[in-house]
């Protein structure tokens, strides 16, 4: 067993080979007690006073542990969530600036803000959840130009839906939101179905 042959570059592990009076290795006895939940796995251990004492010591220790299923209802997660989000909002990652409106205007919108609106628009289509949403202005990465943007959207669709009809509906909803809600001219919309998901509120028998 690995315990009995410590790795040569870790001499400290030699100290841990502790033999009981019966000759059994304590670490191994404890491991077996852990695996079996009782001392009954090894006929020797069940009969041996030293092994049984060692296992009893471990059981005494375990009895003092908090139960694994202890209800943790007294944990105030709301306060932690609030503090985390306060810190997170101090270091937002807004993404790049996208040109908003006509070519002669000097209006811009953060990619993350536009993406939120476009994801919500996609999710208006029943059975659609939106994931990645990247919005690229024309021009190169280093020198973006003003003009219609390219949208790349990842969605997951509920099982059983017509994918073609669904992605078409997503495109339309997205184009409408870009035009009416953002005033963001869009040249291309690429929709990728990245996964299918189990529709919510569905009875067992309705599943494929």
């Amino acid at each position: 067993m690995a315990m009995n042959h410590p790795h040569p570059d870790d001499p400290a592990e030699d100290e841990d080979l502790e033999l009981l009076a019966c000759g059994r290795d304590l670490a191994t006895v404890w491991e077996q007690a852990g695996a079996a939940g009782t001392a009954g796995a090894d006929p020797h251990t069940a009969a041996c006073t030293y092994c049984r004492q060692a296992v009893a010591d471990l059981e005494h220790l375990r009895a003092a542990l908090p139960p694994v299923t202890a209800p943790s209802t007294d944990i105030d997660t709301a306060a932690v969530v609030r503090r985390v989000m306060d810190a997170v909002r101090l270091e937002l990652r807004p993404g790049r600036n996208l040109p908003l409106g006509e070519a002669d205007e000097e209006s811009w919108i953060y990619e993350s803000v536009a993406a939120r609106t476009l994801r919500n628009a996609a999710q208006q289509v029943p059975g659609v959840l939106a994931g990645s949403c990247r919005i690229a202005p024309p021009g190169s990465r280093t020198s973006p130009a003003r003009g219609p943007v390219t949208v790349r959207l990842g969605i997951t669709v509920a099982y059983g839906l017509d994918l073609q009809a669904t992605t078409r509906a997503v495109r339309e909803s997205l184009a409408r939101a870009a035009r009416d809600r953002l005033g963001l001219p869009v040249s291309d919309v690429h929709v990728t179905v990245t996964d299918l998901h189990q529709p919510p509120d569905e009875s067992q028998e309705a599943r494929p």
Binding site: V81, R93, E111, A130, G131, S132, G154, T156, D195, H197
Partner: peptide, 19 residues
């Protein structure tokens, strides 16, 4: 599956997804 989607969005700066 929900975590995967939320993680992708959070990685792109969507703090609501991270929340």
């Amino acid at each position: 599956a929900g975590d995967r989607l939320l993680t992708v969005r959070a990685a792109e700066g969507d703090e609501e997804a991270f929340e």
